[in-house]
């Protein structure tokens, strides 16, 4: 039971960590001072959510039998840590797993490119995340429900912020409309994975821990369509969708994210500052 719950928790946590890292890349590079502060605030919100979830996942992991612990991840650095017989913590989960042990959707690892891409990625994710956390409030797992409740106020703001930017750019100048539409079109094929059930999602649904993501899809479609219409943007056709991230198969982009994120702890294990 715990092994599936750990993986389910990590799916949520890894989304938060990776999009938080992507947003943090704007720090000092925002288009205006006010938005630089806004986007780094949100990066910290995501990081905070990731921390809560990693702490929970680490506590579940530490309760597993040593044999089970070794089987859960294929990352050598984490296995070495487990082999020492010491409990792991949130940092170990963030820093010692390799990309194949990360379960985030591929959407959140997409590069920032420009402001429109960054907005489109957040808009797709925030809209999903708000619906998802709302459902997670009634999870049979009290810890996840509590984290959802704490996170929801932040996510509510994220969704409002990214939706308003989609409208502002979509219904803006010729240039901003063109860029916003291009970003939505390019990232649309990565939206589906958020709401496609993998085995872990199905397990969580069966145990009343997770939620039926297929049900979220209809609401997601409704909300995103309303915003895109107001933004005078074309809603892309729902074609083929990329999948794999939630099962540990990622685009090349995640490797670069992790290289930057994990470098210090890999080069100087256990370093504190």
């Amino acid at each position: 039971m715990s092994k599936e719950l750990i993986k389910y928790t990590l799916q949520i946590a890894d989304n938060a960590l990776v999009i938080g890292h992507r947003l943090s890349e704007w720090c000092g590079h925002g288009p205006v001072l006010e938005q630089d502060i806004a986007i780094t605030n949100m990066a910290l919100d995501h990081l905070g959510q990731a921390r809560n979830l990693y702490q929970y996942a680490a506590s579940l992991f530490n309760e597993l039998a040593p044999g089970e612990q070794m089987q859960l991840f294929a990352s050598t650095a984490l296995q070495n840590k487990v082999a020492e017989g010491k409990p792991i913590d949130e940092d170990d989960l963030a820093y010692l797993r390799d990309s194949w042990d990360f379960y985030n959707t591929m959407l959140v690892e997409m590069p920032n490119n420009d402001w429109a891409y960054t907005i489109a990625r957040s808009f797709i994710y925030d809209t999903y995340n708000h619906l998802f956390y709302t459902k997670l409030l009634s999870s049979a797992d009290e810890s996840l429900a509590a984290i959802a409740e704490k996170s929801l106020k932040e996510v509510d703001y994220h969704m409002r912020w990214s939706s308003e930017w989609v409208i502002r750019l979509g219904d803006g100048t010729e240039e901003s409309t063109r860029r916003m539409q291009a970003a939505i079109n390019d990232l649309w094929a990565y939206s589906g994975e958020l709401m496609i059930m993998n085995d872990t999602d199905k397990w969580a649904l069966q145990h009343n821990i997770g939620t039926d993501l297929e049900q979220i899809r209809a609401d997601w479609k409704l909300r995103t369509s309303a915003v895109l219409n107001e933004a005078t943007l074309q809603i892309p056709a729902d074609g083929w969708m990329h999948t794999g991230g939630k099962n540990g198969r990622h685009t090349e982009h995640l490797g670069y994210v992790l290289a930057e994120l994990q470098f210090m702890q890999r080069a100087y294990p256990g370093m504190v500052w």
Partner: peptide
């Protein structure tokens, strides 16, 4: 946007 920016 001014209120959102002020909040942030």
């Amino acid at each position: 946007m001014a209120i959102e920016n002020a909040r942030d």
